[in-house]
Write a protein that binds this DNA or RNA. Structure first.
Lengths: 164, 164
DNA sequence: CGCAATCAGTTTCATCATGCAACCAGAAAG
DNA sequence: CTTTCTGGTTGCATGATGAAACTGATTGCG
């Protein structure tokens, strides 16, 4: 790789997100955390990844404020990894990934689980993008605007490099 | 790497999605495609990635049915890469990533752009997960159920391994 | 038509990251 | 107090990534 290119200074929010959670394991670790997995060995057992990789990922997830090590839990001297609010904010991303697979996977019959409303056991709705006034928006109904730095509001039409 | 572990047979739809678009460049390529980028050099210029990597990524995106090479376009003998419906289905994932950055990035002032309604230039709403009946759902309001194989409807409480 | 520049890659080659396995210290259990 | 469990770290082997150089068509231009 000669240094995997870093996106942390990229002005694109998508790139910035990928910089943090865009690797092969981080999102799966977070997914497990959503299901109550908290301990090192538990993550390792569920995901089957190497311990050094897990240790490394947990470290960076903690550094990025996605997981938080809490001192104890059941009384033992070890610690557990809990989702922070920032970590919980990843939920829509997981849902979007899941729904994309559900819709387009070439072998959907191999998908084992469905995300349901705990209340009545019925599948959740597909995520939709809405306008401020509630209208449903398709990709084509949207554009990127340069971030309004306190002023300016219209602009549209993207310009240079990796600027979206 | 001694063979990066593959998720393509994992029953978890999140893992399956990551198998396809979970690397460092694919989602950014798709993002550019949403903005009308179509040609090899154009991708390369915007993203600044090595040509061999780009060639490799484009190939797998085409293999997975996310991009489609169309013979011509402006009359030249080259071809262009267009998003398929499956590729367009990635939009919510990009939006979810973008919104996560917007909400939790430690230096949000460095984010250059805002996704707006093309109609009136106002920011779009944040993605929300809703129940079938329209109620807003938080992560805690949801569970995973084993996929109903024609029959059965209640079950809850996840069981074994990487099964969500 | 002839030649230079462009497009779309492919081919080395060096370096980095990943994965496996082995090892290890501190805590808990017996 | 020896054993086991937890939560790692260390040391390779190998694959993935990236920079740069190279190639073979295609186009642009005089």
């Amino acid at each position: 790789m000669v240094k995997r290119t870093s996106f942390e200074n990229d002005p694109c929010p998508v790139a910035r997100a990928l910089e943090v959670i865009g690797d092969w394991w981080s999102l799966l670790i977070v997914r497990e955390a959503f299901f109550g997995v908290r301990r090192f060995n538990e993550f390792q057992g569920k995901l089957g990844l190497a311990k050094n990789i897990l240790a490394s990922r947990l470290r960076t997830l903690v550094e990025h404020g996605i997981l938080r090590p809490v001192p104890a839990a059941d009384g033992s001297a070890y610690h557990e990894y809990l989702l922070t609010p920032k970590g919980q904010g990843i939920f829509p991303i997981l849902v979007a990934l899941r729904q994309w697979s559900e819709q387009f996977d070439p072998r959907p019959e191999e998908i084992a689980t469905v995300l349901v409303d705990r209340n009545n056991g019925r599948p959740v709705r597909t995520l939709e993008l809405h306008a401020e006034d509630g209208r449903l928006l398709s990709p084509a109904d949207t554009t990127l605007q340069p971030r309004s730095t306190a002023k300016s509001k219209k602009a549209g039409t993207r310009s240079s490099a990796t600027s979206n």
